[in-house]
Amino acid sequence: MILTAQDVALAGRLQPLSLVLEPGQVIAICGPNGAGKSSLLSLLAGVQAADAGAVALDGTALSAIPARERARSLGYLAQGGGAAWDLEVEALVALGRLPWQAAPLQRAVSSAGQDAEAVEEALAAMDLLALRHRPLSRLSGGERARAMLARVLAGQPRWILADEPLASLDLGHGLGLLAALRQAANQGAGVVLVLHDLALAMNHADRVLVLDEGRLVADGPPEVALAQGVIEQVWRVKAQWLGEVGARALGLGC
């Protein structure tokens, strides 16, 4: 499923921009604070409507797709999103199945068995099987972040759109989460991540979109989109890539 944006704009936050996003890739959105990264992601996820232009899935505008059907295709993880109630991990992850399950006046799209299986897989992918009955209030920040992403995975979306999913994760679990997302991409899903850590984007993304003050200033493979010149122009810091391709580190101020 190809996700396209045609001249989408948000007043005061995003200048008109167009994108064609192919599934099977990990795509990173980078940019300084206030660049419009979260706005772009929420437009792509259909959570927010654009002031101008349209986002389309395989050529059909999101606004023309029934909400539950759209929800099964586009999984969205809000930035630092919490839960209002102290659910157990498994109940939280199962919320990801809502667009598939029967609801009043709505037929189920999947069987109860398929729902349970999807929840199980998501728990396993995020290393949460041992914590499944633990309430959210008794999880560490990192465990909670994994549970939130597991909720998205449980919905088995064609696209995973996550806003800074690595924000509160330690190194090991951050890499584990990226590996899980890479696996989803290898299985045909599209992955779009807002990432603050440029080294992670450099080493793990197939494509990087760089935003600055609401404009798309670079778009391409990480070596190109995150070239030294782009970083200096957008982030206004002196920076240099060190190390081998695939294990790059960003040297700052040298």
């Binding site: 059907e69 999103g81 939280l92 919320l95 939130m148």
Partner: peptide, 16 residues
């Protein structure tokens, strides 16, 4: 139930 995760996430889960 979906609203447990906030308004934006609820919308992404198909809530009108």
């Amino acid at each position: 139930d979906a609203l447990t995760l906030g308004e934006a996430t609820a919308r992404s889960l198909g809530v009108d």
